[in-house]
Amino acid sequence: MALIIAALLVLVFAANVVIGSVAGAPILGNVEEMLLLFGASISFVTSVLKKEAERDAAKENQD
């Protein structure tokens, strides 16, 4: 779920960049873009940490 959220936030950022280059003015400002990327990175890190915890738990159960 967290990986999907990260992907959606990155897609919104990319769409904003494309709209800004085509229309001449982006919809979101610098602060909003920074918050989008920050949210995407937090979601991505959360997803990676959850996967590592699942892998470690499966490895412990295997032993």
Rank of each mutant, 00 (worst) to 15 (best):
A25N: 05
V22F: 04
K50N: 07
V12I: 15
L49Y: 08
V48D: 04
L9R: 05
V17T: 10
G29K: 06
N61K: 13
F38N: 10
V48P: 07
A58R: 10
F44T: 09
G20D: 04
D63H: 00
A57Q: 04
A15G: 12
L37A: 13
L9I: 02
D56A: 11
G24K: 07
L3M: 07
I4Q: 14
E32Q: 15
I27A: 12
A53E: 12
M1N: 07
L3S: 05
A57S: 09
A15W: 01
K59T: 05
I27D: 01
I19H: 11
M34H: 10
G39Y: 03
G29M: 06
G24Y: 06
S43M: 11
E52P: 04
A2F: 01
N16P: 06
V45A: 13
A14N: 04
V18P: 01
F44Q: 08
M1F: 10
V10I: 13
N61D: 00
G20E: 02
V10A: 11
S21E: 09
V12G: 01
E33H: 13
L9E: 11
I27F: 13
D63I: 07
V31L: 15
G20F: 02
A14K: 03
A57V: 00
L37G: 13
L3K: 09
V31G: 06
A15Q: 02
E52Y: 08
S41C: 07
T46P: 00
R55M: 03
K51S: 08
S41H: 04
R55L: 10
F13G: 09
I42P: 00
L8W: 10
R55C: 00
V10R: 14
L9C: 06
A2V: 05
F44D: 01
T46R: 08
I27R: 08
